[in-house]
Design a protein around this nucleic acid. Sequence first.
DNA 1: ATGGTAGCGGGGCTA
Length: 255
Amino acid sequence: MRIATFNVNSLRSRLPILERWLPSSGVDVLAAQETKAQDADFPLSAVEALGYTAVFRGEKSYNGVAILSKTAPDEVIHGFDEGEPVWDTRMIAARFGGLWVLNTYVPQGKEITHPDYQAKKEFLKRAAAFAERFTNEKLLWLGDLNVAPTELDVTNPKNKQDHVCFVKELRDLFAGLCAPFLTDLLRQHHPDEELYSFFDYRVKNALARNIGWRIDHMLATPPLAPLCTACWIDTEPRGWEKPSDHTPMLADFEL
DNA sequence: ATGGTAGCGGGGCTA
């Protein structure tokens, strides 16, 4: 089974990319973030034309998450059921047989002095708590987590110490949440390569110069991590016309 | 140090 995560930065604007990439990708389940469409405007027929069904929740202009799959999930959860906000346009989970896929678009946080940064930390705690309920089951937490976990995960880390995706406090929080039970699948297979999933539009030739961030992740519970046979980032779609600023990450599982 | 681009929606916010 092949699973991918991709922050599309508007699903409707990225249909040409998906139409070019998905058919030959071999992807069975695609977790998308920043779909940027309210549910009535979700391009379901275009997705179905590609051979996928979808579960999704969005809003006008911002956020939005979806799970595309060749076969429909057995169960779907929108948002967190404990506390407020529910964040149902940033969190969607779906079960495929014995596998849970938790897809999140973590708040970016704006600035470390901004209330959104506090919300970001709260979101990460709630997502980890959700995942932890499935510690003894197969669960894959993936998505745009807006955290570069280590100095290997961003170009020029010295200049990023106060950035909301790299500040030490956030990295410590994230590491503490993950360490007890989650495996970083990309690092399991590529422990020390400078691999990035996000290349800012504003940086000239960012992809060619490999100036980016690894902020999209696939994290697996103990029963699932050993079943992952490969994990990689496909930078090709980032180089195509009208790309997202993120590029897909994929993983193969022998379930 | 600053600003750079893109998407949505039709101005300014978000990233």
